[in-house]
């Protein structure tokens, strides 16, 4: 019955360094299923921790709790890096963490949070955010590790996985200095905020941004298919954002890469896997830095929980170039040795 009951991993990080391995040392695993089992576990824990609770009553409540998904690789490593980043920034206030399995019980999560009374919660990923938002708790929270949009969440606080156009343009112009025009397809209901930033940042860098809307993958495919036909080699670039609602990874991207190869068109992407497939470079989050930013935002929100901080785009990114594509496009690949991930 593991799958039908809430299974959480909770812990309290006394030393941030404990998260370096990705799993806090003092984390416990709780199984809370049917009421009988849950009651038994609560009673046992109450008996065992009575001295600790008596002493803990004098300890300060944690300022920040983190809810995150209990998933396997490669996501577990990413989550651990983000958790490490968070812990590095809020070590003084002893963050507590709760790992949630897919079939998480929102009531149990709410109870868990009530027992700890944090000032703010950080949710990592879709599951944690969903559990917190449906649990009925009124705690302020910061969303991380999710491709949220202020267009759909105007009252939210957090950092989206959507890459900040300014950072994207900086990397693009650095690797391909001859770039003059950038093509982009956006989803109006979701990506308007990003588009506005892109227009502004492109203009600031002397780039022409050509963006066309698409409501679904077929329209997205049509727009990108058109772009790859009209784009000029060397001076035009196609930007594949992180929107799976308009970009079909399995069918569109391979086609674009094939066409771009023959026409020597630059494609950049915010999906790391695309770099392996053959785009010029792909971005991926700097998870530790993201953790830092989330923690800072959480502490800021804890000070003024009544003022949402809004959604920021992802600025802490890393670049994974494809040197074979760089060579094919005639771009200098000698300066790519410092990249952590590089596809040859």
């Amino acid at each position: 019955m593991d799958n039908s009951c809430l299974t959480v991993r909770e812990g309290t990080s006394e030393r941030p360094g404990n998260l370096s391995s990705g799993v806090p040392e003092d984390r416990k695993r709780l199984s809370q299923g049917p009421y009988y089992g849950a009651t038994c576990i609560v009673l046992i824990l109450a008996c065992l921790s009575a001295p600790l609770l008596a002493r803990g009553a004098s300890l300060p409540s944690p300022n920040v709790c983190v809810l995150y998904p209990d998933v396997g690789e490669p996501y577990a490593r990413i989550t651990a890096e983000i958790l490490n980043g968070i812990a590095e920034r809020i070590s003084a206030s002893q963050p507590c963490t709760l790992a949630l399995l897919e079939q998480a019980d929102t009531h149990a999560a709410k109870g868990w949070l009530s027992g700890r009374s944090p000032k703010v919660v950080i949710t990592l990923g879709r599951l944690a955010t969903h559990v917190l938002e449906t649990s009925g708790t009124r705690l302020p929270y910061v969303i991380g590790a999710l491709d949220i949009s202020p267009d759909t969440r105007p009252e939210a606080s957090g950092i989206s996985l959507a890459v900040d156009p300014a950072v994207m343009f900086d990397h693009l112009t650095k690797i391909a200095p001859r770039i003059k025009r950038v093509f982009l397809v956006f989803e109006p209901a979701h990506d308007r905020w990003l588009l506005e930033r892109a227009i502004k940042e492109a203009s600031a860098r002397g780039l022409e941004l050509r963006a066309e809307p698409a409501a679904n993958v077929l329209e997205g495919a049509e727009r990108y298919g058109h772009f790859v036909q009209i784009a000029e080699p060397h001076t035009d670039a196609i930007w594949l954002t992180l929107n799976n609602a308009i970009i079909d990874d399995q069918n569109l991207v391979p086609y674009l890469i094939e066409k771009a190869w023959y026409r020597k068109i630059i494609i950049v992407s915010n999906t790391l896997e695309h770099a392996r497939w053959g785009v010029l470079f792909a971005t991926y989050p700097d998870n530790r830095a993201l953790g830092h930013r989330l923690a800072e935002m959480a502490l800021q929100l804890a000070e003024h929980p009544e003022h949402p901080l809004g959604v920021d785009p992802l600025r802490d990114i890393k670049i994974a170039p494809n040197t074979r594509i760089m060579n094919h496009l005639g771009l200098p690949a000698g300066s790519t040795s410092h990249f952590e991930i590089r596809y040859d």
Binding site: P69, L146, Q250
Partner: peptide, 21 residues
């Protein structure tokens, strides 16, 4: 039919259901 390759990713807010095109 097309499916969402990122449907299983925990970091995607909107999972696109399988769609017949």
């Amino acid at each position: 039919g097309i499916t969402d390759a990122e449907a299983n990713s925990p970091y995607v807010e909107r999972t696109r259901p399988g769609e017949v095109v």
